[in-house]
Simulated assay, not measured.
Amino acid sequence: MNVKTTEKISAGTVGRFVLLALALVNQALTITGHSPIPVDEEGVQQFISLAFTGVASLWAYWKDNKVTKKARTKGE
Rank of each mutant, 00 (worst) to 15 (best):
E7I: 02
K70F: 12
Q46V: 10
V25H: 11
V3G: 06
G43H: 00
I31W: 06
S57F: 07
L20P: 00
T5N: 06
E76K: 08
L20V: 05
A56G: 08
I9D: 02
I37A: 01
A60G: 11
T32M: 15
A71S: 12
A60C: 03
T6Q: 07
E42P: 01
K66N: 13
T13K: 02
L29S: 10
N2S: 05
K4Q: 10
S10V: 08
R16A: 13
A56W: 03
A51K: 14
T73K: 15
I48V: 05
L50M: 05
V39I: 14
N2L: 04
S10L: 09
E7L: 08
D64C: 06
A21C: 06
W59Q: 14
T68S: 15
F52I: 09
G12W: 01
R72Y: 05
T6G: 01
Y61N: 13
Q46N: 03
V39H: 00
T32N: 14
V3R: 11
L19T: 11
T32Y: 13
V18L: 09
A60N: 04
V14W: 11
K63F: 05
Q27S: 01
L24Y: 03
A28N: 04
L22G: 09
G12T: 01
A11S: 08
L24P: 00
K74M: 08
T73F: 07
V44T: 00
K74C: 00
R72E: 12
Q46L: 06
K4G: 05
A51F: 05
K8D: 09
I48L: 11
W62S: 11
A51M: 14
D40N: 15
V14Y: 12
E41C: 03
E42M: 12
A11P: 00
E7Q: 07
T68G: 08
D40M: 08
S57Y: 04
K70D: 12
L50A: 07
K4R: 08
K63V: 08
S57W: 03
G43D: 09
K63T: 14
A71M: 08
L24A: 07
G43Q: 07
N26F: 02
T68C: 12
L50K: 03
T68A: 14
Q45P: 00
N26K: 07
L19N: 11
Q27I: 01
L24T: 03
K66G: 06
V39S: 03
A56E: 15
Y61G: 07
D64S: 10
V55D: 03
L22S: 13
L19P: 02
A71P: 00
A56S: 15
P36D: 05
K74D: 07
